[in-house]
């Protein structure tokens, strides 16, 4: 199998200048994600799970180690060192990220949020709109909400919108930070279906879960994290 992501000795600390303190995010994290594989990460709050995803996405600046990623556009590239311009292009076209909290622009409708993700990739507007509508229907977001502003949405609605926004791109790599946190069983089922479909189409995924039953039904293997360190992998 081809390796999509090779993380070696990833280290992240947060230096708080005003308290003269250094906070540990994660250290010595090493693992490999193969093409089409889904790895789950579990662990207590504050164990450093999200830190890893954010380092890959460069929301956090890694302090050490490498994040070797096989990009379509740039070939093998170390995301820990990549230029901002490269990072922006990779985010736009190759990596999807579903955070725990949807951060939306004011005065942009739910449909536009999903549609814009595709327009940025260069899809024509009409095509982007129809794909976006398909995705929103799949996640059972009520039609009456499509042309509403997401600030007013419930937690579950926001999360489904967030998933739709990332998954509509059919990214090469998808980072999921608790993708089922506030969802009911019906919605969870639709997330599971979409994960399966994307996997079949070749998307590799890295996900953080508290819901272990759900995780075990979708991942190929998982790791547990404790105090910023990664523990032995378990094959699912």
């Amino acid at each position: 199998m081809t390796q999509l992501l090779e993380i070696a000795n990833l280290k992240k600390t947060f230096k708080m200048h005003h308290f003269d303190k250094e906070i540990m995010g994660c250290s010595n994290v090493s693992f490999t994600l193969n093409q089409g594989e889904f790895i789950g990460i579990t662990g207590k709050s504050g164990a450093g799970k999200s830190t890893i995803l954010r380092c890959i996405y460069r929301t956090y600046v890694p302090m050490g180690g490498n994040i070797l990623y096989s990009s379509d556009q740039y070939g093998k590239i170390d995301l820990a060192q990549a230029q901002e311009r490269e990072m922006l292009a990779i985010r736009r076209n190759e990596i999807g990220y579903v955070s725990q909290f949807l951060r939306v622009m004011p005065r942009i409708t739910a449909l536009e949020v999903v549609q814009n993700a595709l327009v940025e990739m260069g899809y024509p507007k009409e095509k982007a709109e129809s794909e976006a509508k398909n995705m929103l229907s799949h996640f059972q977001l009520a039609k009456s909400l499509w042309n509403a502003y997401p600030q007013t949405f419930s937690g579950g609605e926001k999360l489904r919108l967030n998933l739709a926004q990332a998954m509509v791109k059919k990214p090469k790599l998808l980072l999921l930070d608790e993708p089922t946190a506030s969802l009911d069983d019906v919605s969870k089922q639709s997330v599971k279906e979409m994960i399966k479909q994307l996997k079949e189409e070749g998307t590799s995924m890295l996900g953080i879960f508290h819901d272990l039953t759900f995780m075990e039904s979708v991942v190929d293997q998982h790791y547990n994290m404790k105090e910023g360190m990664m523990q032995e992998g378990v094959k699912a």
Binding site: F14, M16, H17, R58, T59, Y60, V61, E84, L88
Partner: peptide
């Protein structure tokens, strides 16, 4: 400091940026 906007806002490196963001 310079960087991606979400990085500047969520993981500011320089003490001044930290003060600004906080």
């Amino acid at each position: 400091e310079q960087g991606l906007t979400d990085q500047i806002l969520q993981d500011p490196q320089h003490s001044y940026t930290q003060l600004l963001v906080h």
